[in-house]
Design a protein around this nucleic acid. Structure first.
Ligand code: SF4
Ligand code: SF4
Lengths: 150, 150
DNA sequence: TTAATATAATACCTAAAGGTATCATTTATG
DNA sequence: CATAAATGATACCTTTAGGTATTATATTAA
């Protein structure tokens, strides 16, 4: 249920960049709008580039843009790009092997939730975030407002 | 989706103890069956006692048993007892406040998953774990087998 | 060709979760 | 009472996610 902060940042970055897929966003611009700690943001941007979700252009006037057709990037792809994975253990208790003769009280309920999460993440792609207009107002309670940039 | 290890341990401990609610389990017995790192297990047991989920009896022949009627302890209660909480942020992106004019592409899907999780945790109580017969075979891949106890 | 401005690489620091060690306290029992 | 066997309290160590700092490299444009 709780993604890592890193994964959340990736969601924020990519859903924001989805607003204009051809625009080259630089780290400064993203920082101004997303308020992710600047240096960490930059680190994530290069990781997302290496992971193939972003294309980076170096040098003056450089920046990043989304690497592929928005419809081909699912939220699950983003999760995977950050090294996380949802699947891990389908067992509620965290066991990777269970030799119980009968399923315990929570097994089926939990499996169904897991199935649900997986479906949502797979079936939601970045193109669906194009329609967000005023994404910048999202950031209302962050504690990074006063972080110095560099 | 991923509880903390501490929360998972608490689930394991309590669902195991639910097999015989009147029996006084001591840390050794629980360790043998659950293979949670011994000293950490003991720490958790005292925390669960302080949280009111367990009753502890000190001294020789002491141990722990579940404090209340099994039907009155939900899985969500266990989550809360370990200091975690599921509710936190209902926002997929982790924002605690969102001022978007319209809901984004993931909002409703995610809210429904959250609702689902919450319902399952609230509606599943410890009494439902009484019927597990051979719970000990659960532990098939732990790395604590060789931990020395004390 | 040099300065400015962007990303890349790498190493290091910090905070929190997970885990360990030590000593104190409680209780049953000989 | 003395000892053994249990939990309680507290402090410390370790690992990892999150975050910071420094230096290198690429690109544009005066
Ligand atoms: S039956 Fe229970 S313990 Fe076994 S894998 Fe399913 S949820 Fe886990
Ligand atoms: S609309 Fe989107 S960004 Fe806003 S709270 Fe819902 S999930 Fe979060």
């Amino acid at each position: 249920m709780n993604f890592t902060k890193t994964t959340e940042y990736a969601f924020r970055i990519l859903s924001y960049m989805a607003k204009d897929e051809s625009h080259l966003y630089n780290a400064n611009e993203l920082y101004e709008n997303l308020k992710i700690p600047f240096r960490y943001l930059r680190k994530q941007l290069t990781l997302l580039s290496k992971a193939g979700l972003l294309i980076s252009e170096q040098g003056k006037n450089g920046g990043y843009k989304i690497a592929k057709d928005l419809t081909t990037i699912s939220l699950l792809d983003i999760v995977h790009a950050t090294g996380a994975n949802i699947s891990g253990n389908a067992c509620f208790f965290g066991f990777s092997n269970c030799a119980l003769a009968e399923k315990c009280a929570i097994h089926d309920k939990w499996a169904s939730i897991y199935e649900n999460v997986n479906n949502v993440l797979i079936s939601t792609n970045l193109a669906e975030f194009r329609k967000i207009t005023n994404h910048e107002v999202l950031i209302t309670n962050n504690k990074f407002i006063n972080f110095k940039k560099d």
